[in-house]
Amino acid sequence: MHAISLAKPRGLDVVAQRARLTGSSLVAPALLLVIAINILPALYGFYLSLHKVFFFGNEGFVGLGNYVELFRDPFAWQAIGRSLLFTFAALAVAVPLALLAAIGIRRLGRWGSVLLTVLLVPWAMSPIVVALLWKWILVPSPGGLVGAAFNAFGLPPQDLLTDPLLAMPTLIIVAVWRNFAFATIILIGGLGQIPRDLYKAAAVDGLGAWESFSKITLPLLAPSLLIVISMLTISYFNEVQLIIGLTGGGPIRQTNTLAYLLYHTGFVELDQGRGNAIAAVMFLINMGLIAIYIRILGKQSGAAA
């Protein structure tokens, strides 16, 4: 063995450090933009919520004053109630509908994908445009679609959007019409992962259609259902564009959800201190929902890996 002067290769540390530097600098632009657009405003909003801010003018620190006022306001509590009602009622309609559609579409085979595409068209539309469209469909006149239907039954056309009892259900139907099919996609995926042999085994074991649905489909679909429910919860809880377009929070605050209250207080009344207090409350509720969501997703990807 002849003597060799060993060139000292880059040590382990140097190589690892360089990779770390490269990795971090590749992530940095995206991370900075996300922090600037999503996280910084949240912090700034919290700061503003501690001040009296009106029409873009900061009139000084008020501590938790905005929050105290907000929680003393019965209308704010009413808005929270309306939000819960809207969110959970829409969920209660959308999830079974999406499940039904998913099962039907899987049965249909090739035509199923056509139907899924058709059902998804409303989801591809803008909520504000959907609101305009439904305003026309609901127009209280015998010349409108719904009006004509009332007419056919010999009833005078009703204005569903200004009826205190019917405005909320109408809003919910439109919201579900727009986006339930998106949940269907995920449920179709979930159904596809249930081994077909299980149904054969269940049939051999003498389970009926309902039993095999409740004892095989539902439990095995639970992960997908959880994803769908958490996604829809966040989406309905923050729905504001449909409300702006359809009811403007009315009639007599029946559709005045927390999201709409935030919009109205912050962007219409320009009471930005209080608006930011509402935003902070909404943000916290969202974070709670998201924490649940991440746990579910995390468990999912953990199980998949």
């Binding site: 657009i37 949240a42 909003g45 923050n238 608006g275 930011n276 929902l289």
Partner: peptide, 25 residues
């Protein structure tokens, strides 16, 4: 970093729209 991306993926922009407007102004 992963938590930031995963968390913000779910935050609807609307929840921080008001402070965003103030900040942008």
């Amino acid at each position: 970093v992963l938590l930031v991306f995963m968390g913000t993926m779910a935050v609807p922009g609307f929840a921080v729209l008001l402070p965003t407007q103030m900040l942008a102004t």
